[in-house]
Design a protein around this nucleic acid. Structure first.
Length: 103
DNA sequence: GGTTTGACCCTAA
DNA sequence: ATTAGGGCCAAAC
């Protein structure tokens, strides 16, 4: 685990309740360039404590939940988002957050 | 050890 | 509007 990951986790923790943001925005908040979005994906995949970090508020730019982590699937992410009052719509078998919820 | 591969985004054509 | 390519950094191979 590197310090860069810690900065990413801190940036994710700053996302307000009931809002979502994109990977690129998290990268910028963490002090990276905008195109370091993939690193954010790696950081969240290797997330140490999924109970305290609001990782579910990070979606891709189109609002889709592109998650492949075996520990936590897209279903759990949708459940955690709806617990915050976010309405998640289903498009072609994939979950999507409407653009109005973006930060 | 170098090389490839990602929970992706931006720019240019 | 859509497509192609480069970039970012850490793991996995």
């Amino acid at each position: 685990m590197s310090e860069n990951f810690q900065r990413i986790y801190a940036a994710v923790a700053q996302i307000p309740h009931g809002k979502v943001t994109s990977y690129g925005s998290v990268a910028i908040m963490a002090g990276y360039t905008a195109s370091a979005a993939r690193v954010v994906g790696w950081a969240l995949k290797a997330l140490p404590d999924a109970d305290t970090i609001p990782w579910q508020r990070v979606v891709n730019r189109e609002g889709y939940l592109t998650i492949v982590n075996p520990r936590v699937d897209a279903l759990e992410q949708r459940r955690r988002l709806e617990d915050e009052g976010i309405v998640v719509e289903e498009v072609d078998g994939l979950f999507r957050v409407p653009k109005q919820y973006f930060l």
